[in-house]
Design a binder for these strands. Structure first.
Length: 317
DNA sequence: GCGACATACGAGGTATGAAT
DNA sequence: ATTCATACCTCGTATGTCGC
């Protein structure tokens, strides 16, 4: 489970593995957060409430996913399904979305929870806002004037939520069926915050921070939409590339949907330095993109990683 | 009517590994 | 080293609905 988080970010596998793996990750991450950050009793209680709410949600979603997959299987075997408008209908309704050329996904209904995530980072507003800004410029959306996030990567749940702490509304949205197994999509809305920036404003602000030598917004922007190109970093090619609808706002465009924001090992070093306490969180979360930043900037870490990769290769061979 | 939860649904460029 | 094929899943917005 941790290996997938630290190499790809996404958890994928058999349904009976993915959901327990998410639960195990939630337990692992909350435990490590409780050990790493100074929390009051109240904050610890909130953190463990969050853990329990997530576990409950995942258990329910697991049950529904299994039931739905079984009904879909049955409908196909008994020939009681039909496909219309990119949807596969089974006798109870929509079984899954089956748009041509895309991974099918099974919608999950009615699995949501309200919970609360404590302020574990305890950053002053002027250090927290740059983190929020970068998320907004990348993965974070706007829903009824509130920030929200949708992801299949468990580390992003914690990395984003730590920056948008407080009251949360969490929902399991769907299960994607990929060739490497199922993955699960979760949606989180931050009810304690107002969405203050449009996507374009946030991107412009990230760019202007960067021109002033402030790298923190770019860190979270890259964690969101940055291109993780581990093999290039490992072979000594250092490029900070971010996916964006309007890449010109950020610097030189590569094609229509990507911006080359910076190059060179120093750029990765600036990113790493900018993280501060947030880096401790990313460390314990084993976030794959953060690991890439460390691979780019820490020779010892990279050597150890390559050694381990070689050992793994030998074992497989 | 409105605010907040909930669901519907459409949309393509990119990662990745194989082939050359 | 470069091209090529194919699987990948993320993102955004619209609309419904329910309680007040």
């Amino acid at each position: 489970m941790l290996e997938q988080v630290s190499t790809r970010g996404v958890l994928r596998g058999p349904v009976d593995w993915v959901f327990p793996a998410w639960i195990a990750y939630v337990e692992y991450a909350t435990q490590r957060i409780a050990e790493t950050f100074q929390l009051t009793e109240e904050e610890r209680r909130q953190l463990f409430d969050f853990r329990d709410a997530m576990k409950q949600l995942l258990l329910e979603a697991w049950r529904q996913a299994k039931e739905k997959l079984a009904s879909i299987y049955k409908a196909v075997v008994n020939n009681t399904y039909r496909i219309e408008n990119n949807k596969l209908y089974i006798p109870d309704g929509v079984g899954m979305y089956v748009r041509e050329g895309f991974a099918p996904h099974v919608p999950i209904y009615g699995i949501s929870a309200e919970t609360y995530f404590p302020d574990v980072l305890k950053l002053p507003r002027e250090r927290l806002e740059p983190l929020q800004l970068g998320w907004r410029a990348s993965d974070e959306g706007n829903n009824d004037g509130r920030p929200f996030m949708r992801t299949t990567q468990p580390w992003q749940v914690f990395a984003w939520t730590a920056a948008r702490y407080g009251a949360l509304y969490i929902r399991v949205d769907s299960v994607n069926l990929t060739r490497e197994g199922a993955s699960m999509e979760v949606v989180i809305k931050a009810k304690s915050w107002k969405q203050r920036w449009s996507k374009a404003e946030a991107m412009d602000l990230v760019a202007s921070h960067l021109r002033r030598g402030e790298w923190m917004p770019l860190l979270t922007m890259w964690l969101g939409d940055g291109k993780a190109e581990r093999s290039e970093v490992l072979s000594g090619e250092y490029k900070l590339v971010v996916a964006a609808k309007e890449p010109w706002r950020l610097g030189s465009s590569i094609g229509t949907r990507k911006a080359l924001v910076a190059t060179g090992k120093e750029a990765f070093e600036r990113l790493r330095e900018s993280a501060g306490a947030y880096g401790e969180l990313l460390d314990l979360l084993r976030a794959h993109k953060w690991i890439e930043i460390k691979l780019a900037t820490d020779d010892g870490f990279r050597a150890a990683y390559k050694l381990k990769a070689r050992k793994r290769g030998n074992r497989r061979a």
